[in-house]
Amino acid sequence: MNAALRETLTPARRPCGSLSVRVMGERAVLRCSGALWLPAHGTLVAADLHLEKGSAFAARGQMLPPYDSRATLAKLEAEIADLAPARVVLLGDSFHDSRSIGRMAEDDRDRLDRLADSRDWVWLEGNHDREALVQADATAVARLPGRVVGDMALGALFLTHEPMPDGPAGEVAGHLHPSACVVAHARRVRRPCFVTDGRRLILPAFGAFTGGLNVRDPAIAGLFTEPPMAAALGKDRVHALAWADLV
């Protein structure tokens, strides 16, 4: 296993130098993990876990180590241990496809149940996992902990999966897997990132095997009328980056 993949699958535990911003007046703490902490609401938010992506690729003959769900849930477990949220909201595409739940290892399912125990656990429907969540909600054998919703309001914020050009003020979304690219020491550095202009916020993908889309791509840049700030994930801090510094 190469070094980059090993680090992804066995992330080191470090204190997080989070970045605190305001979105429509609501304090939003951007975590090194890519999760969002909303202290006024006791709510932890994460987007695009894509659980069982590795097993989905394996089923199509492209072999990846089958440990992405384990690594992603371990990262989520660490955030829950640090913050003790009353509520966890997952912003859609928590599962990679409609059959992901059935492919999960028993210990991963057990860990998921433990994480959700005694807290409000909310699954938002995403384009990858809408069918899986509906099936899980309706079938006792595959039932997931928590509840499934399309989107939800939380104070001045509106939590949804896919950001829309005409989305409401306070929109908090995932789906696009934003990443920031800068040139440092004569080389390009690319990192997952948050993107916000204080009116809306897009979260990076939380999952271990998720890629990224450059924030300068029109699919992301076109959502903002003014240049937003990118907040790139470092190993032990979140770095605020001016739009003009991005490539």
Rank of each mutant, 00 (worst) to 15 (best):
R99K: 15
I101K: 01
I101D: 03
G102N: 14
G102K: 13
M104L: 15
A105D: 14
A105E: 14
D107S: 06
D107Q: 12
D107G: 05
D107H: 14
D108Q: 13
D108N: 13
R109L: 10
D110Q: 09
D110M: 06
R111E: 05
L112I: 07
L112F: 02
L112P: 02
D113N: 12
D113V: 10
R114E: 15
R114M: 10
A116T: 09
A116N: 07
S118L: 09
R119E: 01
R119I: 00
R119H: 02
R119N: 01
D120W: 00
D120P: 04
W121V: 01
W121C: 02
V122A: 07
V122W: 03
W123N: 02
L124Y: 01
E125D: 04
E125I: 07
E125L: 15
E125P: 03
G126Q: 07
G126Y: 12
N127D: 14
N127Y: 11
H128E: 06
H128G: 01
D129C: 09
R130Q: 09
E131N: 13
E131F: 13
V134H: 15
V134L: 15
A136P: 03
A136Y: 02
D137Q: 15
A138N: 13
A138L: 15
T139C: 11
A140S: 12
V141A: 15
R143V: 03
P145I: 05
G146H: 01
G146T: 06
R147I: 08
V149W: 07
G150P: 01
D151P: 02
M152K: 04
M152A: 12
G155D: 05
L157H: 07
L157S: 07
F158E: 12
F158L: 14
L159H: 12
L159N: 05
H161P: 06
H161I: 12
H161N: 11
H161S: 05
H161F: 14
E162I: 08
E162V: 07
P163L: 13
